[in-house]
Computed example of a mutant assay.
Amino acid sequence: MKLRPMRFDLYLGRAVFSTVLLTWAVLVGLDVVMAFSGEFKDVGKGSYTLGHAAAWVLYTVPRRAYTFFPTAAVIGSLMGLGQLAATSELTALRALGLSRKRLSASVAIALSLLTAVMVFSGETLAPWAQSRADDIKMSAKWGNSMAVARYSGVWAREGDTFLNAGAGDEQLLPGGGTKLVLRDVRLYKIGDDGRLASLTYAGSAEHGSDGWVLKKVRRDTFGERSATRETVESEPWNSRLDAAALASGISKPRNLTAMDLRTSIEYRKRNGLDARDYEDIYWSRWFYPVNVLALCLAAVPFAFGSLRSGGMGKRLFLGILFALGFWLLQLFFGRMAGALKFDYRIAYALPPIVMLAVSGMLFRRKSG
């Protein structure tokens, strides 16, 4: 099978490019509009204005484009090839002696170019732009009382106390609502003389309807010539720090580069912390191009069969069905890896293998 570029490669590539880009623009555009409308509820908090909301949404576009590209790729590919199949152009190319595998390779080459651009953007432009978006929102809504360090989580100040949390997340409560859980928490209290008065370490700090609660607490208090330590399992923390502000300040793993994720994983393992959330996102980055190409190649056989007699609605439905099925399969294996604690590389390798196996069976059936 010869793989040197031919005129039909450019023709197929152009057809797929145009429909993928159109689908991509629609999906990202809808997401941007929904995100912008969702920011209206925060306008007026602090100095957060409609202009800040617009700037925040625009800075998040590269990340949204990266996220929606796999879905746009499979829907756009099916639509592009389906249009060629509906006008019998794929049949004409087959009559020239081109195999289904050769035509599929042309589609894969075209999508590889866009995938390479997305991988590069996902490691450079998207994290930088997302960081700028978060800075804009935090500085406008909560002023200068919040700061985010690259690997040290979030820092906040309340009076003479400085808080540092290594990680955290918001959890759903059984009766409704959410609570913020910060992990690997350190509280530095500064005395009137400018020296460190006490250092408190807590395994976690939870904010619910009753305020803040510190758990697994170890406190070192420093005097002129002495230091004392006390440990308690749990104690209330009388603080008026805004939980929403802290939640916004925590760097989410999905917004980090692969290099930053790797550094965070090593940091957490050195300190005996759970790094599986970071490992999940880290390995998903490595399998991103594999997933895109596997998903699109698995959908290609439909363009050689029933799509010739189907309309745009049928192609769109099958594209969405394929993308949704693959996403659910990947989510299932990812959750299984987290629950059973097996290697995320296996979890992310299984979905494309399954999809390619299905594609191979469809190819053989349609060739028969």
Rank of each mutant, 00 (worst) to 15 (best):
L173S: 01
M146K: 01
L214Y: 11
L196Y: 08
L180N: 08
H207G: 01
N164V: 02
G153W: 03
R157G: 02
D210T: 12
T200G: 04
M146H: 02
K179C: 04
P174C: 08
L172N: 12
D210H: 14
R218K: 14
S239H: 05
Q171N: 04
L180R: 10
S234N: 05
K189G: 01
V154K: 03
E230W: 00
R225A: 13
T228K: 13
D220Y: 11
D160N: 14
G208H: 13
A243C: 03
G166R: 13
D193I: 02
W237M: 11
R186I: 01
T228W: 00
L199F: 10
L196E: 06
I190Q: 12
E224R: 15
D169T: 06
R157H: 10
A156W: 11
L163K: 05
H207F: 15
E158C: 00
R183T: 08
A149T: 08
T228S: 15
S209I: 08
L241Q: 06
D193P: 01
W155G: 02
R195K: 14
L182A: 04
D210A: 14
A243Y: 08
D242Y: 05
K189M: 01
P174M: 10
I190V: 15
P174E: 10
D184K: 01
R183C: 00
R240F: 00
R240K: 13
S209K: 14
D192R: 10
L187H: 10
A165F: 09
G166Y: 02
T221V: 12
T178I: 07
N238M: 02
W155I: 02
D193N: 15
R229W: 05
G191E: 13
A167G: 11
L180W: 12
V232F: 05
P236A: 08
G211A: 12
N144I: 01
A202R: 07
E235C: 09
L173Y: 03
D220A: 04
R229E: 09
W212I: 05
R240L: 07
H207N: 13
Y151G: 09
D169R: 15
